[in-house]
């Protein structure tokens, strides 16, 4: 299993409790459609795409996504999130080949 690079970005960087912030989640993933042919071998590259992305805060679900291969390579998901207080924002993502990965970021509101 390959290790995936992923990143959670929060904008603005400084925020208060109750403020609505933009959360971007980026992940390096090939997102193969299963219809592309390898130019060297001529064989069809098997489908490999993210099919589930779940955003949770302290274990409570915020946003759940079901996705298909029509998303771009290295997809980005941006949503808004109302900061309820201190805690941990966690993103769990699964793909159709059974990989399950997660990435988390601490939420520390100021004031």
């Amino acid at each position: 299993m390959e290790k995936r690079k992923s990143l959670i970005k929060i904008k603005p960087k400084k925020y208060k409790t109750g403020e609505i912030v933009k959360v971007s989640f980026m992940v390096m993933h090939p997102m193969e459609t299963g219809m592309r042919k390898d130019k060297k071998t001529g064989k069809i590259v098997p489908a490999h795409y993210i099919n589930e992305v779940n955003f949770t805060f302290n274990g409570k679900p915020i946003t759940t996504m079901k996705t298909w291969e029509s998303l771009s390579t290295n997809p980005v998901f941006t949503i808004y999130f109302k900061v309820p207080g201190k805690g941990e924002l966690k993103v769990v993502y699964k793909d159709n080949q059974g990989e399950v990965n997660e990435k988390s970021k601490k939420i520390k509101p100021k004031g």
Binding site: M35, P61, W68, S72, T73, P75, Y80
Partner: peptide, 29 residues
Amino acid sequence: FATKNSNVRCADVMLTPANGKAMLATRVK
């Protein structure tokens, strides 16, 4: 949805009131 892709579905996003604002940004093929 991308209406003419072979699989038209791109993403189904379930939001909750915890989002604060209903928005989604992503990139499609």
